[in-house]
Design a protein around this nucleic acid. Structure first.
Lengths: 149, 149
DNA sequence: ATTTCTGTTACTGTTATGGTAACACACTTT
DNA sequence: AAAGTGTGTTACCATAACAGTAACAGAAAT
């Protein structure tokens, strides 16, 4: 399987909020950029708010804003906020045969191995912030502009 | 989402084959250790065979064997064999709004960021082989034995 | 008071998955 | 040759995660 697109959408949302510079953006506006339904955006925003990455203001003129500077929100924070599952790798849900020397020990070994892999993934995500993404987006924009000449 | 349990089951299977020391093991025997249906084991075994990690012998006395030494099969090889998806992270399947500066550039940036994370995960998986797993299984076995005293 | 916007619920269609049964085919043994 | 064994594949089912959609209560601004 793949990691759900919630992560990609969440990063998109946070990057948009960063461009707002404190101006609250509505779920409808964000949905227009992501190209999806406002309720989908709100669902993800509520996860981000619960994780303390965004704040929402209700009512007219309301919307969402970053709860802290973009440079202090890593992609690992985002990943943790929208992927509820603790472990990235699924083990077999039926217990392996305890009478088999391999069966009764393999899960513990697999937990270590997959845990190390997941930690490596999260560490890499932790090395990049929403501010970095914003900078890369601007760089892409410059590159594509100059390529048009 | 989580990565399907096929990976965990595949590592289990390969570790079992290593204990067989060249003796072909049947899908029914393997299923007994994994605690699942023989057809599920065969489905995974066919992916492993297609990836060149195992060989199968048909007919009576048949079964599967490792195609090469356990020390030369990394968990990354196994991961690649059973996870068909090229990319671990899903992007939003609808194209973001090309009129938005963020929308028209975010996917390229996300591909780089998620690609780096996936590479880190695979590198970590590549650092461990089926032989390592076998050794850890034996170590677990020793530990649990001594703990019983 | 009215309008705007969030947060949540409920429902739908789609897709991946694991479990199950069944069967053709290959191979071994007798 | 005949019987038995085991793979590889197909088809089907139930389940679960997901994204999309509509709807609505409640909070906040005007």
């Amino acid at each position: 399987m793949t990691i759900s697109s919630r992560f990609a959408v969440a990063v998109h949302i946070l990057t948009l909020l960063e461009t707002g510079r404190g101006q609250p953006l509505t779920s409808e506006y964000i949905a227009g950029s992501v190209n999806t339904n406002p309720a989908v955006v709100r669902r993800i925003l509520s996860m981000l708010a619960r994780a303390g990455l965004t704040n929402a203001r209700l009512g007219a003129g309301g919307g969402s804003v970053l709860a802290r500077p973009a440079a202090e929100i890593s992609l690992r924070d985002v990943y943790r906020a929208v992927e509820c599952e603790e472990r990235l790798f699924a083990l077999h849900h039926e217990r392996p045969n305890p009478k088999c020397p391999v069966g009764r020990n393999i899960q513990a070994v697999l937990e270590r191995a997959t845990g190390a892999a997941q930690a490596a993934l999260e560490e890499q995500l932790g090395a990049r912030t929403v501010a970095d993404v914003m900078a890369e987006v601007r760089a892409e924009e410059r590159d594509s502009r100059s390529a048009m000449v």
